[in-house]
Simulated assay, not measured.
Amino acid sequence: MKDWAPSIIATALFAFLCPGVILQLPGKHRPVDFLNMKTSVVAILAHALLFGLLLLLFLVILKAHLYI
């Protein structure tokens, strides 16, 4: 059986953590901007770090598995 949890979790986190789509952290004018569809280098690095930490949490620490 294949474990689908890594693929599904990584895809969902990527969709939710794209800078500027739902939120941008740090924003251009405020600490958090919502739905502005713009990005910056600092926001890309912050979202990449957050993505990596959440992926590590779900896959390594919590050991999430989904067998289909």
Rank of each mutant, 00 (worst) to 15 (best):
M1E: 11
K2Y: 10
D3P: 08
D3K: 04
A5T: 01
A5W: 00
P6Y: 06
I8Q: 07
I9A: 00
T11D: 07
A12N: 08
A12L: 15
A12Y: 03
L13M: 08
F16S: 06
F16H: 03
L17S: 04
C18M: 15
G20Y: 13
I22Y: 11
I22S: 10
L23V: 13
L25R: 00
L25P: 01
P26K: 00
P26C: 04
G27W: 05
G27D: 00
G27A: 03
G27E: 04
G27T: 05
V32G: 04
D33F: 08
D33M: 06
F34R: 14
M37Q: 07
K38A: 07
K38C: 07
K38F: 07
T39I: 10
S40T: 15
V42H: 09
V42G: 03
A43E: 08
I44R: 06
I44Y: 10
I44N: 10
L45F: 10
A46C: 10
A46P: 03
L49F: 15
L53P: 02
L54T: 04
L56E: 06
F58E: 01
F58R: 00
F58Q: 02
F58G: 00
L59I: 01
L62A: 13
A64K: 04
A64L: 13
H65G: 04
L66A: 07
L66F: 12
Y67F: 15
I68H: 04
I68G: 01
